[in-house]
Design a protein around this nucleic acid. Sequence first.
DNA 1: GGGTTTTGGGG
Lengths: 482, 356
Amino acid sequence: MSSTAPAAVAAPKKARAAKKATPSKDAAPKAKRGESQRYKYSELNKASLTSGEAQHIYGVIIDATFPYKTNQDRYICSLKIVDPSLYIKSQKGTGDSSDFATVVLYAKRFEDLPIITRLGDIIRVHRATLRLYNGQRQFNANIFYNSSWAVFPQEGAGHGGASHSGKNYSFEKSEDATLANIRKWAQGYFQQYNVVSSDLYVPLAKAAGQKSDFDVVAKVNQVFELDEYTNELRLRDGSGAQTWNVLALKLKFPNVHAGDVVRIRSATYDETSTQKKVLLLSHYSNILTVPANSKLAKEVKAKAGDEKLDKAAINGVNATVLTEVDKKHAGLPVHSLLDLFHNIETDKEIQSKDTFRTQFYVTKIESADVKEWTKSYDKKTKKGASFKGQKGNANAIYQVQFLVKDVSTQFNSNTYKVLLYTHDGLGANFFNTPADNLYTNDKAAKKLQEYSGLLTKFNSWVDAVVERRNGFYFIKDTKIAF
Amino acid sequence: MSKPAAQQSAFKQLFTEMLTQGGDFSKVNKDLKRPLKTYVKESYPFFLVTDGYFFVQAYFTKEAVAEFRSKFNNVNITDLHDRVIVLNSWSLEIRKVNSAETFTSYGNLEIRLIVNSFKPNLNERLNPTRYPINLFRDDELKTQIQQFRWNAINAAAGKAKSEIPDLARVQTASKGKVEGIVKIGSSKGDDFAEFSFKEGTTATLSLKDIFVQEKGKDASPAKDTTAVPKVKGGAKGKGKAAQKSAEKKAAGVSKSAEKVLKYTPSKSVAKKETPQKGAAGKQSAKKSVGGKKATPAMPSPGGKKSIKTTDQMSMNQFKKYLDWHEAKKGGKTIGKRSTTGKASTASGKASKRSKK
DNA sequence: GGGTTTTGGGG
C-alpha cells in the first residue's frame, strides 16, 4: 500500500503447468569473445526496412492492447512506441500529431506477453523484424520463437523494476546509459507534449456517435465496487456534462484509482444502456494510467472537474455514495464487513487495529421514529432519555443504529450493526446538524427524515470510517455530503 | 429532461421486465412474448442465442427437442451455430444458482430462456451486429438484479428484530467479542434466501445429452456443461402449466412476428439473402474449391496440425472440423445425426447452403 | 497487426 515506485508493469503471472514455457532463447547473439556489447539497439526511425534482419529496439510506450487470445495457440499484444527519432509528425492544417512505430508481440501463452499499465514505460525488444504496414513502421516479434521483450517502469533508475519474457533475461552494462537516456527523454517528452494527440482518442461527448470502437482519455472520478469481481469506473473528460460508466474487472485492472487520468485502448458505445451512459470494453481493451505529472494528465484533470452530488440524482440508477470521509483518513485501508465482523475472529492483523474505512448500504435505521434518534444523555448514569414531552435539548446526543450490508456479505443472511452514537463525540457531525430535541426542532427533524429516506434507498451507499470500541463499531469523521 | 430511450435489445427488455415484475413471467407484457428470431452464436458446449446485442443461454424442453427431431430430421441442434432459429414458444423463469459456476447468471440468480418449440431458418442470414456480449455482465442488468435482491433483503430486514444497544452497554468492555451480527430472514443456511418469487422448475435437456443423441457417445467434446445442478430441475406441475400456457399463447401466431427484427436498427434490417460479412468470409475460405477434381482441395481445418482424432480438439477446431466434414460429405447443411445415417442428397456436389 | 478467447468475471 506504500506509494513508492509505482509498479509500472504488472508482474507476469506464474507460469502454469499446461503449455511449455517459451523456450528461453534470449542467449545473446554469438558475441565474439571479449566483445562487450552483444546487442545493438536501433533508433525506431532508423531501423532498416530492407535488411530483413532481426533488430533490437528501445521505445517509450504510448499505447498497448491487453494481451489477448486470437485462437487456440496464439496471443497478441500490440503497442505503440516512440523515441527521440520518431514521435511527432507535422500535419498541415490540423497541426502536429503523434507519430510512432507499432510493435506486435506474438506468443503461445498469455503469460509470455507484457501487461502494460502505464503510458511512458519503456520496452526493449530483441530480435524484432521491421516492415511497413499501412504506412507505419511495424516491429514484429515472435516471443514464441526467439524474440524477447523487457519492460522498464518510467519511474526509477536502473533495470531493477523490469519485467520480461523468458528465463534468460540479460542487461548489459552499456544499456544503463541507453535506458537512462530514453527515460530522461521520455520525462521531458511527457511534460512538454501531450504524447497522445487528439487524433488518437475521442472526446466522451462524441462517444455516442461512434460507429465502431474508439479510444478515450479521461479522468477516473470514482471507482465504485459493483460486485466482488467488478469495479464501475466513473469517467469524465470535460467534453460534456455526462459522467460515463465503464465496468472494469478488478483482476484485469487492479491499478486504476480515483483521480487517475487514464487512456482506454478500445471501447464501444453501448446502445442498450438507456438509464445511464456506458462504454463497453473487449478482451483486448486496456486501461493505461497517464503519468500524473504529465502535461496531458494535468490538462485532463483541469477540464474534467468533479461531479457534484445531486440529491435528485439519488434514484437507484447509479450507485451513489452519500457520505464523505475526513481527508485525514485518506490513507486508511478499506476493510469489508466480512473483515470487520467475521474475519476478525481469526485474523490477528484485523484484531490489532480498531479504525477502518468501509463501505456499506443501510437496510434499516433504528429507532424507526426519527424523533427518537437523539437522546438526552446522562454521563454519570450512562443513560439516555427520550426528548418526548421534554423542553430544551439538554445533553443531546445521537443514538442511531444502522443495519448494514455490503458486497462481501451480499449473499449471506446477515445484516450488521454500525452505530452512530455520539456520546463520546464520535460521528457528531454525520448529519450536518447538531443533536437536538427533535420534538421541538422541526427543521432538524425534517432534515433527518429526508436523510433517513435517502440513506435507505436502493443503491445508496455510505463510505465511512468506523472505530471499534467494546466490540461495537462506531462511525466517526464521516458526514453526509449534502 | 430524460428521454424515453427505447430499449433496442429484445433480451434486455425482456429480462429486465421479468425482474421488475418480481420474477413472474405471467406479468410480463404480452406484446413482448411473440416469437423470437435469434442468431445462434454457439451451439456447443453452450447453446447461446443472440438478439443482436446480447447472448443468453437457451434451454430446450424435451418437447422442443422431440418436435425439432421429427420436423428437421436432418439437422442437428448442436450444429446450429451460425444459423438463425426462431423460438416460437418460450418462457422465462428465474432460478437460484451459483453464479461462480454459471456464467449466464448474476447474484446467484439466473433468468432462463426456456424454449418449448423452435425451428431453424437454414437459409437466412442476418446482418452483422455488434459483438454479442453476455447479458448477465451488462451494467444495467446487473443493477436490476441487485435491485431485485435488495427488495427481498430490505423486506426481510424490515421484519428482523434487533435491539439498539443502550449507552451503558456500548461502554462496557466486551471480552474481545465482536458485536452486531443480525440475522435476517428465516432461511436455514447461511445464504440469504427469503425471496418471494417462485423459482422456475421447468425440466430441460442438458445440451450434452442432446449432443450425445446426435453424435453418439464418443463423438468427442461431450462436455457436460450443465450448470452444476444445485437442485435437479425436476419436472413439476407448475413448470408444465407455465409451459402450456406459453404454448397456447404462441399457438395462434402464424405470422411469425419477428420480435428481434423489430429491434434491429433500421439500417441493418435483416435482408434474407444478404450474407453476413463475417460469415461470408468464413464460408469462402472454406469453400475455395480448387476447381480440378471433383472433391479437390478443400483444406481441412487444423492445417499443419494433422488432427486424426477429435479427442483433443479445441471447441474451435471441433466446430471447424464438423463444418468441413459436412461440407465434404456434401448436401447436409448442418450435421446429420450420426444415429440416423442416411445422408440423402444424391448430388454429392460440394456443399451449398441447402434449401430448407 | 485497430483485435473476439472461454480460462465463459485477466486472457
